[in-house]
């Protein structure tokens, strides 16, 4: 008994900071946020209980909210697959014995490294400007320049390109995954006369599927919460015409610009539910396409 007590004491001594932090900075705020989501609260007057009003407003009388939700979905479902595709293609290109691979790996990773910074968002804003280098390149190719800041759809794609540009960290994870596939599988397939595509779909994709799953989940969650590029590129407005008003940015504006703390809290909860559903959908679907070696496979 004595040693049990002592063991527990040591255990809680060590993880104590986590428990205290969890209570103070996570669980209490979660409960408070849940409560606020049913109130009208402006930070200066006491919260006023309004039941489901906030949620009702979101889906029935706030077109800006629905618009923000829509473009965030476009951002996530265009950006994440494109990013993963790039990551996979480049990882396969780099999965060779060439001595230059280390250098290439570094170069391709650099955008990911600096991608979250304000500096890069500023840079992106400038290269997509009316006389920026993107339009110069388009004109050289004989394509009409695009007014990226004059058109909400173009502005959203500017953000999607920025997200795709940062495929480097996913690429590193894929590269590590590719290296762990036994070379003998490919050799055996070659002996049987398999083509490149047959090898790709029957060896590479199944063997890599747990890593793809992991990447898909993490990138989807992260993409849903994107804030910095939208904030910087639109100078905090979400413009043009709300074209870059991603969910997090709209939430931030509702909370800290209009002081609709109750509404913003309700938005955060809807976001949590959406992320939860997306994650479970990916996990649920994984049954059909993720191949786990330890289950014996085929």
């Amino acid at each position: 008994m004595q040693t049990h007590m002592k063991q527990n004491l040591w255990g809680y001594l060590f993880i104590g900071p986590f428990i205290i932090g969890f209570l103070a900075f996570t669980i209490i705020p979660i409960i408070a946020s849940f409560y606020f989501s049913f109130t009208s609260y402006d930070l200066f007057n006491a919260p006023r209980w309004i039941g489901f009003e906030n949620f009702k407003k979101m889906f029935t009388s706030d077109p800006r909210y629905l618009h923000s939700l829509k473009i965030t979905f476009i951002y996530v479902f265009a950006g994440v697959p494109l990013r993963l595709l790039f990551a996979l293609v480049v990882a396969m290109l780099l999965n060779t014995a060439s001595r230059a691979v280390g250098l290439y790996r570094t170069l391709y990773y650099l955008p990911s490294l600096i991608g979250g910074s304000v500096a890069v968002a500023i840079m992106w804003r400038q290269i997509f400007g009316d006389d920026g280098i993107v339009n110069l390149a388009l004109m050289t190719m004989g394509i009409d320049p695009v007014r990226w800041f004059g058109n909400p759809t173009a502005a959203l794609w500017m953000l999607i390109f920025l997200s795709v540009w940062q495929f480097g960290s996913s690429m590193l994870i894929f590269l590590a995954g590719l290296k762990s596939i036994p070379q003998s599988y490919y050799e055996a397939a070659s002996v049987d006369g398999a083509s490149f595509f047959q090898k790709f779909f029957n060896i590479t994709i199944p063997m890599l599927s747990p890593v793809i799953l992991f990447n898909a989940v993490m990138q989807t969650i992260a993409a849903f919460m994107t804030f910095v590029p939208a904030y910087i590129i639109s100078k905090g407005t979400g413009g043009p015409l709300d074209g870059t008003l991603l969910y997090s940015l709209y939430l931030f504006k509702q909370g800290f610009e209009f002081f609709h703390m109750g509404y913003a809290s309700a938005m955060a909860w809807v976001m949590l539910v959406i992320i939860g559903i997306l994650t479970s959908l990916i996990f649920f679907s994984s049954k059909y396409w993720v191949h786990y070696e330890s289950e014996g496979g085929r």
């Binding site: 063991q7 986590f18 979660i30 849903f224 909370g255 913003a264 955060a268």
Partner: peptide
């Protein structure tokens, strides 16, 4: 360390990994 409630707290920690900052930001 082995202590009562270890797996519970570990699971909680993994869950907080997934929690969007937006949910706790305002409170």
């Amino acid at each position: 360390l082995k202590f009562a409630g270890r797996s519970f707290w570990f699971a909680i920690m993994i869950l907080t990994l997934m929690l969007p900052y937006e949910v706790v930001m305002i409170p």
